[in-house]
Design a protein around this nucleic acid. Structure first.
Lengths: 218, 218
DNA sequence: GTAATAACTTAGCCTCATCTAACAATATAA
DNA sequence: TTATATTGTTAGATGAGGCTAAGTTATTAC
């Protein structure tokens, strides 16, 4: 098994690699708030364990083994978040910190039980997919709200870059997963969007926000 | 806050000190499965932090501060065990290992929620008292089954030295908390007891077992 | 009351995960 | 295309929490 620390590096690599597939030592260092030389030596250690591909002065890529391990940790994290929200009554903005700790528990039985109690969910409370027991998952191809056109009606299916503050902001605007949104117009100037949903007929969402909301077209 | 390791030392001291109030370095070493020199240096560290009283070549005693800290960890452990049994359907023999890990989580909110969901319980699934929010608790004075006399009828209220195997043994004999037992006789020779409960009219319990069962007289 | 045993302590070493300081390579901009 | 800035690497230190080997103090047995 891997150490608490190694697990955090794997998870960070997994999350950062989503777009490019490779991650610079610098990105990792910033994301983990750990100095570069430390990250550098840890990356070498992960390479020794065949969890990442690494060459001097080159970005890092997870190996298949590394992807699997990372996927399994993310699985535990997301199952936990779902459990905290659905079975314990936490808000979606409260669960990240706690799941961050619980994901490291060594008890397959515990996570089996959670999975079962939740009815084998496929997404977490923020709409992110939960990897399966082999560590694999697919992001069904959702669009960013910011890529949609006026006149379209869409359903909010996931939230990305989920920070505390952002989720609280969504709460305050009554923006929840599953919500139907109609796009009324897009402001040329700053990319902000005017949308309607529920009883709100003209809410404005900045580009910063609409880029973080994933939707399915209806 | 204290490290994971320090928390384990505090918890061990708390558990071992129950009878004598003081604990030898040797006992601690055996209980934690950590070599004496390591324990020795850790004890000094705890003394620096005013968590234990310590003099060279003398046993160790928790300070009031240390007792409080330890009590709060035990509280988290026992609340967790109760949660695992009552809300997640685990058996009382399965929860120790998991609680051992969860007790170290840093999230007051998480344990508040558990406490609330359980209706502020005062004992864990094995009948041990759950310390309050100041780390204090009282072992209501229960008697060992082994100290009872033939003819008495008692209620099983707690189990001590709870290992996996022992709890499984109790399961197999259908010995659960709350059970009424009548003591029929005690064997002079080896201290074993013949008791009746439920539909069983003459079950034999060895001294090893009856010393680990706490009862209240009826 | 001494000798043997058990318990305790000290000294010194190890690994893990972190750091800083200094140097090397690559990328960017003039 | 050379100068500068950014990114990456190496070397060496640190603190936590372990270990073994060797010596010291208590305790137990005779």
């Amino acid at each position: 098994m891997h150490s608490y620390t190694e697990e955090n590096y794997l998870k960070a690599l997994f999350n950062l690699a989503n777009s490019k597939g490779e991650v610079s030592v610098n990105d990792l260092s910033k994301h983990l708030a750990i100095k570069m030389p430390t990250v550098n030596s840890m990356v070498k250690k992960l390479a020794d364990k065949k969890l990442v591909h690494y060459e001097l002065y080159r970005p890092v890529r997870l190996t298949d083994k590394g992807k699997k391990e990372a996927g399994l940790i993310i699985r535990k994290h997301r199952l936990t978040e779902m459990f905290l929200v659905q079975k314990m009554g936490f808000g979606w903005e409260e669960v990240h910190e706690i799941a961050e700790q619980i994901e490291h528990l060594q008890s397959p039985l515990f996570f089996e039980k959670i999975d079962e109690m939740l009815g084998y969910p496929t997404v977490d409370p923020h709409g992110s997919p939960i990897p399966d027991k082999t560590g694999k998952f697919d992001w069904t191809h959702y669009e960013k709200l910011s890529d949609c056109k006026p006149g379209e009606t869409v359903k909010l299916v996931a939230v990305i870059h989920t920070t505390d503050e952002f989720l609280k902001f969504l709460n305050s605007r009554e923006l929840y997963l599953g919500l139907k949104l109609k796009i009324k117009s897009v402001e040329r100037f700053d990319g902000s969007m005017i949308v309607s949903y529920n009883k709100k007929t003209a809410e404005s969402l900045s580009l910063t926000v609409s880029e973080r909301l994933l939707v399915a077209k209806l």
